[in-house]
């Protein structure tokens, strides 16, 4: 069943188009940076961007930081919102369920497929970012036979070995993937509520926009720690020396709670629902 869902998703032109669009912005930013040589000063603009001119191997992280606030969540919301609602709209849901695919099994398969999309999307952005970063900027190769070991500099000013950068980059990528899982859980839940994939996607975006907006509002500070987008950018903390785990662990546990609650709700709703599409 999971394999069936993966085949469906990755054989779909739209899946790849979404991933391609996702990579367009970081590439554009890289081209502009190279042409103008005008990097934002440290502390301004998307994280890591100021550093990439001196070390292109940081560009995967800069690329993730560029797509994280908007494009990556939209992409995940589109795919996750489509998961059940898309089948309902196409009418294929009734044939899957009378096959019978089993409602819980179908939901799990959809969840795994969406999760894999998140991982693939994040990895593709990171890999494309790495290729772009190392070809267009001054690169200090990571890993392998590096002499000297002055890979890069952390935000705290100390230097990191290339090995360290690789590890921290991988952890950062993992963290972003977990944050996107929260988005996927919202998408899957909304997708069981409606027969319109667009409606489900818009629902997710409404939640994320509200969350980002409330985050900037002082009056909302009591609920700020519970906003789904609160700790998204905490992956930056992997590049402090030593790593600041506080926000990272909070972000991970917050996403875990959201994912748990939303998936339970999605399951409860989907397994007791009248399928009339």
């Amino acid at each position: 069943m999971i394999l069936v869902e993966l085949r469906k998703m990755f054989r779909r032109p739209r899946t790849w188009a979404t991933i391609a669009v996702l990579n367009a912005l970081p590439i554009l930013v890289a081209v502009l940076l190279v042409l103008t040589d005008l990097a934002p000063r440290p502390g301004e603009g998307p994280p890591f961007l100021s550093a990439v001119l001196s070390n292109g191997t940081l560009y995967p992280l800069a690329a993730l930081a560029i797509v994280l606030p908007l494009f990556l969540p939209i992409a995940v919301a589109v795919i996750a919102g489509d998961s059940i609602a898309g089948e309902a709209q196409a009418g294929t849901l009734r044939y899957l369920l009378t096959r019978p695919a089993g409602r819980t099994r179908l939901l799990v398969a959809k969840l795994v497929a969406v999760m894999l999309f998140v991982v693939v999307a994040v990895l593709v952005v990171a890999v494309v970012g790495y290729v772009v970063g190392t070809t267009m900027f001054h690169a200090q190769p990571i890993g392998g036979t590096v002499i000297g070991g002055t890979g890069g500099t952390s935000f705290s000013g100390t230097s990191l070995t290339p090995q360290d950068i690789t590890n921290r980059t991988l952890m950062g990528i993992g963290y972003v993937a977990v944050s996107m899982l929260g988005v996927a859980a919202f998408g899957l839940f909304f997708s069981t509520l409606t027969e319109s994939p667009l409606g489900a996607t818009m629902g997710v975006l409404a939640v994320l926009v509200s969350s980002s907006l409330l985050f900037t509002l002082d009056a909302a500070s009591p609920i700020a720690p519970y906003l789904p987008t609160r700790y998204w950018l905490s992956f930056v903390d992997f590049f402090r020396d030593p790593i600041q785990w506080r926000d990272i662990t909070r972000g991970l546990s917050l996403q875990a709670v959201y994912v748990g609650v939303l998936l339970t709700a999605a399951w409860a709703n989907f397994t007791t629902k009248d399928v009339t599409s």
Partner: peptide
């Protein structure tokens, strides 16, 4: 083929 693979 996909439909057939989706169930028992």
């Amino acid at each position: 083929a996909l439909l057939d693979a989706s169930g028992p």
